[in-house]
């Protein structure tokens, strides 16, 4: 597919460059809130909203923001939308707001959002950046939904809160350990079917945009020689 088409900007985030399962970014919310499928979708959509809005604003301001102070500027834009999302959820979906808790505020430090601002929105036009945000957001939401469904079905024998009357459940899946386990298995299955080798590194170090993103681990890794 043509890498410069609008369609590619949209769909690359869903599978090929999936932010969670392929780029391994934003691991904290992926592991923390996915004890229920509905939490996963809620967190995914909240993050997508922030991602799309911040991509649009940052892309629109990309010629105005001076290069040297761009990261503080990005952070302010992102955090503004996080606060907005926090208010909206508190007003309209208070149940979800209390279940996501502190991780709603922590969307502000989700490296997917800052990563897309740095690597994509600050270099591309508004329309493309919005598509990129939408695609990445969908990819993140899908990954969280998959995690949430697996953990809810196996851990509490329910799906979207509806009891499935399973003969056997494994409560460990809704505990913290189950989060690490499910994500590990999910990534292994993904790489088994795509027949590729899983990445050896985690977090910013493995991220394909690491070279462009001065805020991430790449800088520290270069100076220490640490191969994470």
């Amino acid at each position: 597919m043509d890498k410069n088409s609008n369609l590619y900007a949209l769909i690359k985030g869903i599978v090929k460059e999936n932010p969670t399962l392929v780029m391994l970014l934003g691991m904290c919310p992926t592991l923390a809130v996915t004890t229920m499928a509905s939490n996963g979708i809620g967190m995914g959509l909240a993050t997508s909203f922030v991602l799309i809005c911040s991509n649009i604003v940052i892309s629109a301001l990309r010629r105005v923001i001076p290069d040297t102070v761009r990261l503080p500027c990005f952070i302010v834009v992102i955090t503004t939308f996080v606060t907005l999302t926090d208010f909206l959820l508190k007003a309209y979906i208070p149940a979800l707001h209390s279940r996501l808790g502190i991780f709603l505020s922590l969307i502000a430090v989700n490296c997917i959002i800052l990563g897309r601002a740095e690597a994509y929105a600050s270099k591309n036009n508004v329309f493309r950046s919005a598509l990129d945000g939408l695609g990445m957001g969908l990819g993140f939401t899908l990954a969280l939904f998959a995690m949430g469904s697996i953990r809810e079905i196996l851990g509490s024998g329910a799906f979207f809160g509806i009891d499935l009357h399973l003969p056997l459940t494994f409560p460990i899946f809704v505990m913290p350990a189950g989060g690490f386990f499910t994500l590990g298995i999910l990534i292994a299955i993904l790489y088994k079917f795509t027949n590729k080798k899983p990445p050896a590194k985690v977090g910013c170090a493995a991220c394909p945009i690491a070279a462009d993103c001065i805020n991430c681990a790449a800088r520290a890794i270069k100076t220490t020689g640490e191969e994470a």
């Binding site: 913290p176 350990a177 590990g184 990534i187 990445p199």
Partner: peptide
């Protein structure tokens, strides 16, 4: 370790076991 578990997946599963110990 099996090929598809090399790298990140095995690290995550090890983290799960360490997390169990903290329970």
């Amino acid at each position: 370790i099996p090929k598809s578990f090399a790298g990140v997946p095995s690290t995550l599963i090890a983290a799960a076991i360490v997390s169990v110990s903290f329970m």
